[in-house]
């Protein structure tokens, strides 16, 4: 665990540095995620080391959004008269995007014979 922590933060740090050095339109942690995914896929030893920490952090991923969520409350008034329109836009577009995305995924998976594994 104590070795896994600096490795996790190190990949984030490397991602942040690369994003700034190359002016990429991606956040540093996303680049760090891609880097770590390549590394753990290549090394089963690294995967065994990182897995308990990663699963521990991800088990309560929702918790990490609470501080930002509390910040939203103070800004709700900034939506002003557009509030109802924006709320409707978010509700309908999110529902439509989830439905369309999932239906297209299943349709294309069926067309190319990519069946879900049994689990």
């Amino acid at each position: 665990m104590i070795q896994a922590l600096p490795i996790l933060l190190g990949f984030q740090l490397a991602g942040e540095i690369l994003v700034r050095a190359l002016a990429l339109p991606v956040p540093g942690p996303v680049l760090g995620m891609i880097g770590l995914a390549v590394a753990v896929a290549a090394s089963p030893r690294l995967m065994a080391l990182m897995r308990p920490l990663a699963e521990g952090v991800l088990a309560h991923l929702s918790l990490l959004f609470v501080p930002a969520g509390v910040g939203v409350i103070g800004h709700l008034h900034a939506l002003g008269a557009m509030g109802p329109g924006l709320a409707l836009a978010i509700l309908i577009s999110t529902a439509a995007a989830i439905a369309v995305g999932a239906l297209i995924f299943v349709a294309v998976a069926k067309a190319v014979g990519s069946e879900p594994a049994d689990d």
């Binding site: 996790l8 933060l9 984030q12 991602g15 942690p29 995620m33 995967m47 990182m50 990663a54």
Partner: peptide, 22 residues
Amino acid sequence: GAQFVHFLLGPATVALAVPLAL
């Protein structure tokens, strides 16, 4: 106070690499 929780969003994003690789 909440910043310590908020900070973990970055490392948690990197940690998504593990289920992705699995």
